[in-house]
């Protein structure tokens, strides 16, 4: 039997919002470590990986590892029935074909129980290599969202050039060109507003804005986003979920032939 409880439904609602435009179906793997999910989008250009650790839950019980195959659209719809402040319990029997979602209002006066049909999914899993990156940029997540949105008005791709002390995001299109330069913060009072740029070697790579705009749906989960970049490998766009885990997106670069 699997059962877990979170004090606020809000975080799981935001997590579903961050996933449902990119993937249609996915498997939540449940183990003693927590909940995790890994899936590529239908065109295999990007991959999303979510980890929600046991320690972040109020209660977490998992007698046996199980895989919960879900339709993301359905799960997101049901999650929307919870108020942000409701506490939420997820429950499933070991060999069951249902996932129960129980929402309880903070004053305990209203309890809603939904049951979602699970799917038998066979989803290809990729091994994510544990590697060092040439550059890591941390910046306010809202700023990154804005840059991706604004550059989409110009072109389909963004070229990211990282040098010591700053990053250039540039796009080219039929109507013209754009370049946004973000400089590393020299002095920041609030950590959430900081831009930090770690460079082991300068990099210059091109990525599809369409996918980056999908990734920025995770913005409400975290004040900061980190971008890890190395030559000729997928970009990692990571959002930490405070005290609970993370949502990480991987995006294959565009490569010049």
């Amino acid at each position: 039997m699997f059962e877990c409880r979170l004090p606020k439904a809000e975080v799981l609602k935001k997590t579903m919002d961050a996933l449902k435009d990119l993937i249609k179906e996915a498997v939540w793997d449940v183990s003693a470590q927590g909940l995790s999910l890994q899936s590529m989008d239908s065109s295999h250009v990007s991959l999303v990986q979510v980890t929600l650790r046991t320690e972040g839950f109020d209660t977490f019980r998992c007698d046996k590892n199980i895989a919960l195959g879900v339709n993301m659209d359905t799960m997101q719809k049901l999650m929307k029935c919870a108020s942000n402040d409701d506490n939420i319990t997820l429950k499933s029997e070991d060999n069951g074909d249902l996932l129960s979602l129980i929402f309880e209002s903070p004053n305990g006066e209203k309890t809603s129980e939904y049951e979602m049909k699970l799917m038998d999914l066979d989803i290809e899993q990729l091994g994510i290599p544990d590697q060092e990156y040439s550059c890591t940029i941390k910046m306010p997540s809202g700023e990154f969202q804005r840059i991706c949105r604004d550059l989409s008005n110009i072109g389909e791709s963004v070229n990211i050039t990282v040098v010591k002390g700053g990053v250039d995001f540039s796009a080219k299109g039929d109507i013209g060109n754009a370049k946004i330069h973000v400089t590393e913060s020299s002095n920041v009072d609030n950590e959430k507003d900081a831009v930090t740029v770690e460079v082991n070697e300068p990099v210059n790579l091109t990525f599809a804005l369409r996918y980056l705009n999908f990734f920025t749906k995770a913005t409400p989960l975290s004040g900061q986003v980190s971008l890890s970049i190395s030559p000729d490998v997928p970009l990692v766009v990571a959002y930490e979920i405070e005290d609970l885990g993370h949502v990480k997106y991987f995006l294959a670069p565009k490569i010049e032939n």
């Binding site: 295999h44 250009v45 990729l126 091994g127 294959a252 565009k254 010049e256």
Partner: peptide
Amino acid sequence: KINQGRMDDFFKIS
């Protein structure tokens, strides 16, 4: 010409 890479080209099936 610029080609879009695919995740399968970078990460192996586990």
